[in-house]
Nucleic acid binder design. Sequence first.
DNA 1: ATCATTTGACCTCG
DNA 2: CGAGGTCAAATGAT
Length: 349
Amino acid sequence: MEEGLALVLYGCKLAKDLEQNLPHLARQPDTLLVSCEDIIRVFSNVKERLVSRGQMNVPRQPQELQRLDDHIGVGVPEWLRTGMVVEQEQPSGLEFVVHGVSGGGDVAGRSLRGGTSGDVQHPVMNAPDSNRTSSSSSLRQRRRKEEGEKIVKEVPAPQMGNLDLPPEDGYTWRKYGQKEILGSKYPRSYYRCTHQKFYECPAKKQVQRLDHDFFTFEVTYRGTHTCHMSSTAPSAAVPPPEPLQPATTTTAVHPPASELPFSSSLPTTHHDWLSMQIFHDLGGVSAGSSTVAAGSGSAGASAPRFPDYQLAVADMAETMFNSGSTSSNSMDLIFSSMDDKWDSEEKKD
DNA sequence: ATCATTTGACCTCG
DNA sequence: CGAGGTCAAATGAT
């Protein structure tokens, strides 16, 4: 196992190197491809070792996690830990209550279809109110109020740290407005997808605290994320578990993966492409939607499962390749605690 | 310099 | 006309 961990670390280092050289490699697709393949090969190797070691012989005991912790560095990220024990305890944080759904869902149905069709349409993006004549012909273009898909969820708010932070849902959002709402104690914040610019991603959300429950947000999602349809899209489709204390007072329930915002109904999220790429290379078992459940805590009942720590590795790789979190640099997040370890390891040599 | 947030003004719709 | 939603300049953070 020690050797396997070393391989994981090596793979992570390769990925980090790749990230650092990305500006240059971006102009050299061939080199970039080789680098990616190297990384995949390393993690595939790890996977082979783990499989041959015994399918279900997964380190779950606390002391074993501690060993991993010690090996990788100070503090395996909490999401990685929880990813490893996802079956035992529901991870905290991502507890959604589907409050109500309205709208046709037509948009979602079309654009979420696996991205195979290639021409994702943005029905609300064009049609910029051609004949909107505010006599002064203001330069501002405004779209009609979008009808259709609207998903309302109640999400427990952070109960420690910055209480003003909106609930993390795995996407990156950019706030573009805030407004006092009549009859509501708390203002409503308006967010749009950070990647709207590059990918014309129309996804938006509104976040507002419940009047009667300061520690619960009502989150209204509108539009569908299209930014993860591209293989180069930088968003994360699967929300990572929140490293926060579980909300103990809410009656939130754990939804099936299909109820997570937009992404999970996708049969081939980027999460899948990642894990499938890695495991498919080996002619391994089918990486079905069960991989999606890795972070969400809903275990596929019948689908073949990978050992949880493999999912964690895939998750980590995913996090490295996708800046999905609101945090600006997920690589730093992952490696910040590992740098010291690497340094000390290298000094030993 | 770049990107995110804030905030007042503006627009849309009921 | 007013409430809700969005824009974009100003400001702040990195």
